[in-house]
Design a protein around this nucleic acid. Structure first.
Lengths: 343, 343
DNA sequence: TACCCTTACGAAAACGTTTGCGTGTGGAAA
DNA sequence: TTTCCACACGCAAACGTTTTCGTAAGGGTA
């Protein structure tokens, strides 16, 4: 087991100083061609690689981006990470991913850990608990120590920093408009409790679309779900014998669950009831019938977030003081679960 | 913007030496109670956190585990990561995740980057390209430099190290047995090309099960798919008008695609044809009909892999020299897509 | 008063780099 | 022979820790 070779060892072997080795490897003109070649040959032979940790300490930057997301087993977040990685790798950055598991405490711990030397900046989507608690001191603190933070998707309005979001409200409006435009009038919505920022915004978009079409908003068509993972019976009860012609679900799971229970209740999709979801994941694509949905372009979000962060990290002082909010376009992906109703 | 506070700054502020501060924070008896309290109060006030990078350099370990997987947008791999994170966090380790995107080059780059100081050891599932190329020098090299590697799922037999796998062959056998036991006789298999280790093993398991039941193996019932992401037309052509009563698919995507095209071809599942998949992901669970499948217990794999790695990292020299292969049990999850055929 | 022991702290090395600056050697010019 | 200047290299500081060892001050004992 040959240990990792250091400058010091090479220097000793070749009977020169450490600085000579370092400079030789960097092709410094200070060092004679002869020595340079000798050092480089030796370094190659022993597979010398500079120690990142030492470099980080010396340069006071790690060339690493910390990404903290609420869930790691989640299609949308992984697509965002994909985008982040793409940009980061291009620009020579490493990516560390941590999941908060939707726990405030774990979010704080992860952030503090990464902030104490492991990452130069952060891309973050906050945990449910954080949105509920409204405690953002860890984020503020990180920024006050000079580390830039980019928030995405589940953001916090009160925190001043770069942000990448979709216009959730507009996306929901687009979804609802689509249903209205194909002739649906009695549109139920399956959404989350209000403290989830994106859920609330999507509910708002739904309501706005109804108003624009002069369709009265009806309380009994709105279901706000708390326990996302066990939503089936709740949705089933809610939908049972309800006089509706369409369902708008604010996420993929609600959409497929609605499709499933409606099927069980003898409804045909899209003939009896149209369904539209949110998030273009693997479920929407492969479900039968495939689900019309709103795409959030997760990878784009990741790309933009990473660019914003790297700009800040490498930018001059001027750019440092202004914060930008990038809004990613949503788009409607029309599939089989929505269909023009016959007049 | 208050910069991160260091020992040096505290020392200066309090007019003591750096070592005094360091010792005081560690409650060393060398330091008077008075000084200790003063230092601790000051450190708390300024939110002092030791710099991880400096600690890593000093201790020559990073307390970080590097995880490299072929794809980040992939349900199975994320569940494995979930398991790794769980154990890692318990034991005070950080996790860095990189994706190789199934590219050999990117796998090498990521590994080398993390190996040069960023991680103490690795949990790795190799890229397709790596399996094809059979070039494992980067892994051997990493290990020869004293960094333990645990391979999981897509492993390499030739590399001697700790491994966590499922018995793919046995799992496939279990799946095929299930089909046979409910009366299916003409079982097609949708599998991958042979260089993908897990695909080949699962094909073997299928064949073995057939032999054990004295069912002749028929070449025309075996489809080896190269381009996983565009498999629909291939599967559709293969299945068209084929005289079969069951399909075994070696992954989730093949399974749902088979279900879809069979549906299009007018077959009822499970009445006309039973389907069984591999991997218990989100698709199998939510598809209609929900798919019988073999669960790989991804989270377990992650847990075991992390434990193996940490054992090696913290173990004494004795444990260092022996390598273990942990085989995670697979289990059959029976859902709606398989049904006893009427005799 | 002289000596010793405890208490409380500081100096310095080490981890592996990079880099500005100092310096010895040799040859060329005067 | 003296002076000067490249050239080629080494020294040392710095990044932020931890830890070993050294030591000054003070009090107690003989």
């Amino acid at each position: 087991m040959k240990q990792k070779v250091t400058l010091k060892q090479i220097a000793k072997e070749l009977d020169v100083s450490i600085s000579t080795v370092s400079k030789a490897l960097k092709d410094s003109v200070e060092i004679s061609l002869d020595t340079r070649q000798k050092v480089k040959a030796f370094a190659k032979l022993y597979n010398y690689k500079p120690n990142n940790i030492a470099l980080s300490l010396k340069n006071r930057k790690t060339k690493t981006i910390g990404v903290i997301i609420p869930e790691i087993v989640h299609h949308f977040f992984t697509t965002v990470i994909g985008g982040v990685e793409k940009v980061a790798n291009e620009k020579g950055y490493n990516v560390i991913i941590c999941s908060s598991n939707n726990s405030f405490d774990k979010e704080v711990i992860n952030l503090e850990m990464l902030a104490s030397g492991s990452a130069d900046g952060f891309i973050l989507s906050v945990a449910k608990e954080t949105q509920l608690k409204k405690d953002y001191h860890h984020i503020e603190e990180t920024m006050s120590q000079g580390m830039p933070v980019v928030l995405f998707d589940r953001i916090i309005d009160e925190v001043v920093c770069d942000k990448v979001i979709i216009d959730d409200s507009k996306g929901a409006q687009m979804a609802t408009n689509h249903l209205l435009s194909i002739g649906c009038k009695k549109i139920a919505i399956l959404t989350t409790v209000d403290y989830i920022s994106v859920g609330k915004l999507r509910t708002n978009g739904y309501l706005r679309a109804l108003r624009a079409y002069d369709v009265p908003e009806r309380e009994e068509l709105i279901l706000k779900i708390e326990d996302i993972d066990n939503c089936e019976s709740e949705i089933s009860n809610f939908l049972k014998d309800k006089d509706i012609d369409a369902v708008f679900a604010v996420n993929e799971l609600f959409a497929v669950t609605a499709a499933k229970v409606l099927g069980q209740q003898g409804k045909k999709i899209p003939d009896d009831i149209s369904i539209i979801g949110f998030t273009d994941g693997i479920l929407s694509k492969h479900f039968i019938p495939s689900l019309t949905t709103i795409s959030q372009h997760g990878e784009d979000m990741g790309v933009r977030a990473a660019k914003l962060l790297i700009d800040k990290l490498e930018g001059d002082e001027a750019a440092t003081e202004e914060y930008r909010t990038v809004i990613i376009d949503t788009s409607l992906i029309q599939r089989e679960s929505t269909k023009k109703t016959k007049e």
